[in-house]
């Protein structure tokens, strides 16, 4: 069962997305800010991180850079989630080291396709 770390500060988004992913068969762990996200990603063995970009403590960009910088997480697939497909967000996400990105509100099928693409053994 693929293990996904969802880093999201908004409680409703967290709840909604984690439940929907769980129903699709993923094991979902939660982090509520960038720092916690980085810590959890280092500790546990996750297959993929869904990273909200506007986070308290350290934001998604910075958290991604830290994960990429650490050897144990440098290859961890990360999908950035941004509030709106603002021009530049996508580029910034990829530049920071994200593997892909998606916009909120989440269209579950689209997101699932991106997750599937990044999980080992599937791509």
């Amino acid at each position: 069962m693929p293990k996904i770390l969802l880093v999201e500060d908004n409680e409703m988004n967290r709840d909604m997305l984690s439940r929907r992913l769980a129903r699709k068969g993923y094991e979902v762990a939660i982090a509520i800010d960038g720092r916690e996200g980085v810590e959890k990603a280092r500790d546990g063995a996750y297959d993929l991180v869904l990273m909200d970009m506007s986070l308290p403590e350290i934001d998604g960009w910075e958290a991604t850079r830290q994960l990429r910088a650490a050897p144990e997480t440098s290859a961890l697939p990360i999908i950035a989630l941004t509030a709106h497909a603002m021009s530049g967000d996508r580029e910034r996400a990829l530049e920071a080291g994200c593997n892909d990105y998606d916009t909120k509100p989440i269209e579950l099928d689209r997101l699932l396709a991106k997750i599937q693409a990044l999980l080992p053994g599937v791509a």
Binding site: N10, M12, N13, M16, L17, R20, A83, H84, K104, P105, I106
Partner: peptide
């Protein structure tokens, strides 16, 4: 605006 909207749409 979009945070609550996201909740409405998502839920």
């Amino acid at each position: 605006l979009r945070t609550p909207l996201n909740a409405i749409i998502g839920y």
